[in-house]
């Protein structure tokens, strides 16, 4: 395996708004190593979602280099999966069918697909809800299904765009730990975009702090291993203050 999974070099992106180009991302450079978890924090509108959409391949026009496993990214691919802030499950499919939708492009047989989908539902603790429709699931459960759907195709890189933003504190804390466990267990690389600094500290091996107008990286903070990431520890509190201070500058 290469030493970098994701390579972002001098990435810039602008949208055309009212006839004039509006720079949204400017000169972003970042490498993500295999198995590394990166948190991204930044003010609203600083281009965090745009960055993830570029990486996953939903947006394709940009300047600079964007490559995964050495290959330039030119559209969605099996090896990169995303979980959005809203679960984006298909309301007409059951939970297990939604997870199977993540295998749309695999050559597996029907029963094999079902088996793998059920396995991934079990991974997020929803074995008993395989036949439930999305409207019958709570917000947290639906988001778990979305995570299972993202993981089922065995991606190398998991992108999370404020995936827990709409959940209550308890469910959120639960899911954070669950995602961390799965990412570590499967040896994935992951990028999480969040507004919650504690969440960024808890999950990230590094925290990328972005600033707006145009979106750029203000600082990349490498975290220590272990309990220093737990909210409330002196290290975490200090780190939190440092990040918030960074975010306050403009």
């Amino acid at each position: 395996m290469a030493a970098t999974a994701l390579e972002i070099r001098d990435l810039s992106k602008s949208y055309v708004v009212n006839g004039a180009p509006l720079p949204v991302l400017a000169g972003i450079s970042l490498d993500v190593a295999p198995g590394e978890f990166v948190s991204v924090v930044g003010a609203s509108g600083c281009g965090k979602s745009t960055l993830l959409r570029l990486i996953v391949g939903l947006e394709q026009e940009h300047d600079g280099r964007l490559a995964y496993d050495g290959r330039p990214i030119d559209g969605p691919g099996r090896e990169r999966a995303i979980v959005f802030q809203e679960h984006r499950l298909f309301p007409w499919l059951t939970a297990v069918q939604n997870v199977e939708a993540g295998l749309a492009r695999s050559d597996l047989g029907k029963s094999e697909r079902r088996r793998i989908a059920l396995e991934h539902l079990a991974l997020v603790g929803l074995s008993n809800f395989a036949e439930a429709l999305p409207k019958q699931l709570s917000g947290g459960m639906a988001q778990r299904v979305a995570i299972a759907r993202a993981l089922v195709s065995r991606p190398g890189l998991l992108l999370l765009d404020e995936p827990f933003g709409a959940l209550d504190a308890l469910t959120r804390s639960h899911l954070q730990r669950e995602v961390l466990r799965i990412v570590r267990q499967e040896g994935l690389s992951a990028i999480i975009v969040t507004h919650d600094v504690d969440e960024a500290i808890l999950l990230g091996d590094r925290v990328v702090v972005m600033q707006p107008h145009p979106g750029r990286i203000a600082e990349v903070i490498v975290e220590e291993e272990g309990p220093a990431r737990e909210p409330g520890t002196p290290e975490a509190v200090a780190l939190r203050r440092r990040i918030l201070h960074r975010l306050g500058e403009d």
């Binding site: 996953v56 939903l58 995303i82 959005f84 984006r88 298909f90 007409w92 939708a101 749309a104 492009r105």
Partner: peptide, 27 residues
């Protein structure tokens, strides 16, 4: 649009997009 993007990220074929997404949404 949100589900349209989901079909893109999950790399549905045009046929799958029709059968699994567009038609049920039209129902």
């Amino acid at each position: 649009q949100t589900l349209e993007e989901a079909t893109a990220v999950l790399r549905f074929s045009p046929w799958q997009r029709l059968i699994w997404a567009r038609l049920p949404a039209a129902l």
